[in-house]
């Protein structure tokens, strides 16, 4: 039965524009990075591009693969967390915005199966975005001829992106919970934005490794120098957040009234 539920969740995305919009959003990241690097490689261009050129010069970006990979990881970690929140909110929230939750909940399918299937769809969607953005980023870097590109460096970028994307994903079930609880898109996206900001604030304190939304920022270096390995405690925190998010979403779908 779960296979049919999962296939159904994939079918529900047919002809929707959301996957393409989210892909387009994150694909803009490497292009902006490439534009900045192209500008700062030639001081004359920076002057030519006015304010944009000044921003590029002051951004601290160097036209090297190492800098490019670090900023790309930052974009996937921070922007991606917000984008992933939208993905999770969309997969769960459209059942309420389109009025189909009552249809879904009167099917002879255990409700936890819908939660798992939707989270799998969100994971596949997110993985596809990250892999396409990775491929795009490598192609752009090769086209720019950035110094320092090696097979090992490319593999290292892929590993870092998958690690950051994976840890970001572990926070997605909490977004699903907020979506199911509030039955809409606005609250979960607002919640994700708030947590992202709070994570950056907490990231500057000693509590950073213990606050789920600070762990990606400390990993990608948005609050300090990027760390190579996360403390075990941080991994336990994000894993517990993941489990709690799933359990909460299942409980909410099971035990609360659907008066839609």
């Amino acid at each position: 039965m779960f296979t049919a539920v999962l296939a159904g969740e994939v079918v529900k995305l047919r002809r929707t524009t959301a996957p393409w919009v989210t892909l387009g959003c994150l694909m803009a990241g490497p292009l902006f990075l490439a534009l900045f690097m192209w500008i700062i490689r030639d001081p004359g261009r920076a002057a030519q591009f006015g304010l944009l050129g000044t921003k590029a010069s002051l951004s601290g970006i160097e036209a090297t693969w190492a800098s490019y990979a670090a900023f790309l990881t930052l974009i996937v970690g921070m922007g991606g967390t917000l984008l992933l929140a939208f993905v999770a909110a969309y997969v769960f929230g459209r059942e309420y915005s389109e009025g189909t939750a009552k249809v879904m909940l009167t099917l002879p399918v255990p409700r936890p199966e819908f939660v798992i299937a939707k989270l799998v769809v969100a994971a596949l969607w997110w993985l596809a975005i990250v892999l396409v953005v990775f491929a795009e980023a490598v192609a752009v870097a090769v086209w720019l001829g950035l110094p320092g590109i090696t097979t090992g460096a490319i593999a290292s970028l892929l590993g870092n992106l998958l690690l950051v994307a994976g840890i970001s994903y572990l926070l997605a079930p909490v977004i699903a919970l907020v979506t199911v609880w509030t039955r809409g898109y606005l609250a979960p996206v607002g919640f994700a934005l708030g947590m992202l900001l709070l994570g950056n604030v907490v990231g500057h304190t000693g509590w950073a490794p213990w606050f789920p939304w600070s762990i990606v920022p400390i990993l990608v270096g948005s609050v300090s120098t990027p760390v190579d390995t996360l403390p075990v405690g941080s991994l336990v925190v994000v894993a517990a957040t993941f489990v709690a998010g799933i359990a909460g979403t299942m409980w909410c779908l099971q035990a609360t009234d659907n008066t839609q």
Partner: peptide, 24 residues
């Protein structure tokens, strides 16, 4: 019981306004 939905296999329903996945 909402947790054991096997009985819903024998039930067809339409609750208030009919809704469907608009993109399908």
């Amino acid at each position: 019981r909402s947790g054991r939905p096997e009985w819903l296999r024998r039930v067809g329903c339409l609750v208030e306004t009919a809704t469907a996945y608009p993109n399908l």
